[in-house]
Simulated scan of single mutants.
Amino acid sequence: MKMVFLALLGLHSAVAVIHSLKYFYTGSSQVPNFPEYVVVGVLNDVQMDICDSNIKRAEPKQDWMNDITKDDPEYWKTQTEICFSVQPVFKANIETAKQRFNQTGGVHIAQGMLGCEWDDETGEVNGFNQQGYDGEDFIVFDLKTETWIAPKQQAVITKQKWDENKARIAQLKNYLTQGCPCWLKKYLNYGRSSLMRTELPSVSLLQKTPSSPVSCFATGFYPDRVMIFWRKDGEELHENVERGEILPNHDGSFQTSADLNISSVTPEDWRRYECVFQLSGVKEDIITKLDQTAIQTNWGKTGDGSSSGLPLGAVMGGVVVLLLLVVGIAGYFLWRMTNMETSED
């Protein structure tokens, strides 16, 4: 599924924030040790609840989600009913997709993402509903044209059928532009103290080998509205710098990095370089000087001859594990409108 990344400028000023509510879902066939049906809810890239065919209920993943029952004691019972009312649809859709692709048995996965984004300054709303099969996009809803897009030839029949169902399209549009943003704002209100918190990172300089780029690695920060870059003599560098993605940690915080290619940097010029980390809502930058004695490596010693304090392999290994966890949490989908999805049959 295509992921949307937000470029945020002017982090130290009172900038607008684009909030998101996304439901990822997965229906699977013959996948060992994995639920046949999984639904995961994500608010501002933080998992808030889950529902799957193993636990057989919807349940919170954040403490603040329990506060909803103060206003609606039947909330989790209702969400469980909604969640599992859609499970048969995924089983039917997998069977239909197998026929379209001339498949018989084997492992197959149907995935999807439903949700919306809301700009808290302009009020602009954007909604999306996209579905995939066996790791590739299958059909995507275009909210602007109110039509379905079929990236695969096998999905053309589905596109034609769904495009003709104007009532269903109107229902989906209403949810994406009205219902979803309403729930998004409601969840934000419950989780405000947690979601609006600010946590500063720990920043380290890491290097795999003496000839490798120096990585400025920041972890443990929140929220994920950050900028990290290298500069020389106070000027931001754009060449010989590679920025990493912002990735989630297991505790809800985030990590990111920026790599500086030092192959052409002479030892006497190292002091002219520094890594800058900026966090939205925080006035002070976190500045880390390019200092050979501060670099932590996994190839032996730091610049001053002492043992390195943090093996880079362990750090990068943790990143890989996190990526696998993100991929492993297959999809996420909380169907708030009954009968929104119908089988492709």
Rank of each mutant, 00 (worst) to 15 (best):
C83K: 00
I286T: 06
V320R: 10
K22I: 11
R225D: 03
T293S: 15
V140E: 10
V125Q: 06
S307D: 15
S194I: 12
M3T: 15
V320P: 10
D119N: 15
M65C: 09
F141S: 04
V42G: 04
A97D: 07
F5N: 14
A58Y: 10
N339Q: 15
T288M: 05
N54T: 12
D45Y: 08
C116D: 09
W183V: 03
K77T: 03
T266K: 08
E121F: 08
Q171W: 00
V241Q: 02
L206T: 06
T158A: 14
F84H: 06
E274W: 00
P73C: 02
Q278K: 14
I262Y: 00
D52R: 05
E164K: 15
E59T: 12
S306W: 14
G234P: 04
V107N: 10
T104Q: 05
P210H: 06
G281Q: 08
E164Q: 14
Y37A: 11
E242Y: 02
R225Q: 06
D163F: 08
D120W: 09
I139W: 13
G318Y: 09
Q255M: 14
L312C: 12
L143C: 09
G244L: 01
T26V: 09
P151Y: 03
L205A: 02
K77N: 03
N339G: 11
E245K: 14
Y332S: 14
M337I: 13
K186A: 08
D119Q: 08
R100T: 00
M113D: 14
D291G: 05
V46R: 11
L43T: 06
A314F: 12
I55W: 00
I295R: 12
S343K: 13
W270M: 11
V320D: 08
Y273I: 00
V282N: 07
Y332M: 10
W335E: 13
D45F: 04
K283H: 08
G105D: 08
D52A: 03
V319E: 12
T302W: 01
Y222S: 07
K159I: 10
P201A: 12
S194R: 13
H238R: 03
K70W: 01
V326G: 09
S204D: 07
T96K: 07
M340I: 10
C182M: 09
L237A: 03
G303T: 10
I286H: 02
E274S: 01
Q131M: 13
K144W: 00
W76C: 04
F101C: 05
L6R: 14
N93R: 09
L324E: 07
P88S: 01
K166M: 14
L184T: 03
P223T: 04
G10T: 08
H108N: 15
